[in-house]
Amino acid sequence: MTMPLSKKIVFYSLLIISALAVFAPALMAFVMSFMDNKDIMTGSLPKSLSFDNYLKAFEQFPLLKYLFNSLIVSVVITIGQLILSSLAAYAFVFLEFKGRDILFFLFIATMMVPFEASIIPNFHIIRDLNWIDQYPGLTVPFFATAFGTFLLRQNFKQIPKELREASQIVGMGDFKFYLKVVLPVAKTSLVTLGAYGFLTSWNMYLWPLLSTTNDTVRTVQIGLKQLQTQEQLNDWGVIMSGAIIVIIPTLILLFLGQKQLQKGLTEGAIK
């Protein structure tokens, strides 16, 4: 698309301004994480920059432990979601049974129930299973997602049904077809769903707070909160350095995922 230079300049300056506005809090946090407390409190420009806050964050709190917990929880949730959603989506696309579409709509309707509404029953269940303060309690309730199933179903539907028929003729069963054809062909949306699932579970706050009572399995988001409340006077520099550490994995994943996504999108479809 070509546009006159004057228009371009206007557009780009508007874009830059709004980008700065959106990014300002993160930028501030980043700068604050290198400043000492006095500078932060007086609101002056930093006189000296140091890594002290980062060292303190690791020394004062079991940040590594939190990070590790978060990683475990996020990875397990992601894998669980991928497996369950893709299997369910396969059934909704390739298996024919009575009432399939009605069942699917019911399934989709659960997307409208907010997670907060199901927190109490979920909590009861994991308490009865003695899963409080355990990884299963943190992860299993999130395995089944209507959104993931919906996303994958739409993607699977684009796989020509002739592929299934061709595999039927050579005598390939459903599960093998799912493994050998459907999953590789739908790789792109699996990556999308995986990235999405990982990010949401990494940023999860309410449920880990409820289902944990001590530091053994607590995730990093709760840890961050603890940074804030343990002292009378908040050590903002430390808190910000903690926050920066927490968003690093997210950023890495976004960059990697984006590359994968673009690669997947440019891949040609059948015919």
Binding site: P160, E162, L163, E165, A166, V181, P184, V185, K187, G268, A269, I270, K271
Partner: peptide
């Protein structure tokens, strides 16, 4: 043999 050939794209 199918109309759209039904080749496995991957």
């Amino acid at each position: 043999v199918f109309q759209n050939y039904a080749l496995y794209p991957h």
